[in-house]
């Protein structure tokens, strides 16, 4: 059954086989995508026609590599900016939220806590359309009542940021809260006794303690935002983020350029994820 008990050979073999099968299932699509990004063929499929870097660097009439593809590059840049602002906003708000729910007591705390968790159980698509509706209502209201046209309420960059922020902040709050629960509050009291003011205590003691969690949460927020599709789909204006742009291309038919983009994405996110794991291990 388990390590400490005697087990039959078949049982062990069966389990090993199962796990190997599972990992093949897990990695097959990713590996194939990466490998075919280097295939010298117009379509991302076998047979193998030889190794090429064309899908990254070429700038020929019949094949344009990712580094010369204006649309893809633009969308990567948009995604970066969105992810940057979402990370900034949701890390700040999420950390404050964690403080609020862990250290303070106030009326309706239970209700507010429940509302904070709500985005976890609302499907992303619903979140997208409801935010779209609200911003539309607000936009029309401002325009008919005061005759001002506020750009923020149109589908576009800032609405995407807001939409993603609305549920990523919850995740940040949960991650930071988990760390804050382990915090020994007597440390704060000691610092207060030694003459620090409230602000200094938070800056030098509490935030220092929370730093690994905050960085971890920020990395998580960045990746979540970078690859969010469901919510973004409804809020996006003319500036498409990378997932939306890739989706449009995949739907219309595939080229090895998509593989190349995917390859870059896989490598990039894996690096961020590994760095995140490494640092969170080290801090523990």
């Amino acid at each position: 059954m388990i390590r400490t008990l005697p087990t039959s050979k078949t049982y062990n073999r069966f389990f090993k086989f199962y796990v190997i099968l599972y990992f093949t299932f897990l990695f097959a699509p990713l590996v194939v995508t990466c490998v075919l990004a280097f295939n010298d063929s117009q379509f991302p499929s076998l047979p193998w026609k030889g190794y090429t870097l064309d899908w990254f660097t070429a700038n020929l009439p019949d094949r344009v590599g990712i580094f010369h593809d204006r649309i893809n590059l633009d969308s990567i840049w948009v995604s970066f900016r969105v992810a940057f602002f979402v990370t900034l906003l949701s890390t700040t708000v999420g950390t404050c939220g964690a403080f609020l729910f862990e250290q303070e007591d106030f009326r309706f705390k239970q209700l507010l806590y429940f509302l904070m968790l709500a985005p976890l159980v609302i499907p992303g698509v619903i979140l997208g359309i409801s935010i779209l509706l609200l911003s539309n209502t607000l936009g029309t209201y401002f325009e008919t009542s005061w005759g001002v046209d506020i750009d923020l309420f149109r589908p576009g960059f800032w609405l995407v940021v807001l939409g993603q922020f609305s549920f990523i902040a919850t995740l940040v709050t949960l991650v930071v809260s988990a760390r804050l629960k382990k915090f020994d509050r007597t440390l704060e009291e000691a610092a207060l006794n030694l003459g620090a003011n409230r602000f200094e205590v938070i800056w030098h003691i509490t935030l220092k303690f929370l730093r690994p969690a905050i960085f971890g949460a920020a990395a998580l927020a960045f990746l979540m935002s970078f690859e969010n599709f469901n919510t973004t789909l409804f809020l996006v204006g003319h500036e498409a983020t990378l997932p939306i742009n890739l989706y449009l291309q995949v739907r219309d038919g595939s080229t090895p350029v998509i593989n190349a983009t995917s390859f870059l994405l896989i490598v990039g996110t894996s690096l961020v994820a590994l760095a995140n794991l490494y640092f969170s291990r080290k801090s523990e």
Partner: peptide, 23 residues
């Protein structure tokens, strides 16, 4: 093993679906 399981899920859902489409 845990890291191995986690890794693919950091990658965008779209990329993973695309991988299956190619397969």
């Amino acid at each position: 093993l845990l890291v191995l399981i986690l890794l693919p899920f950091w990658v965008s859902e779209l990329v993973r679906v695309y991988g299956w489409m190619i397969l």
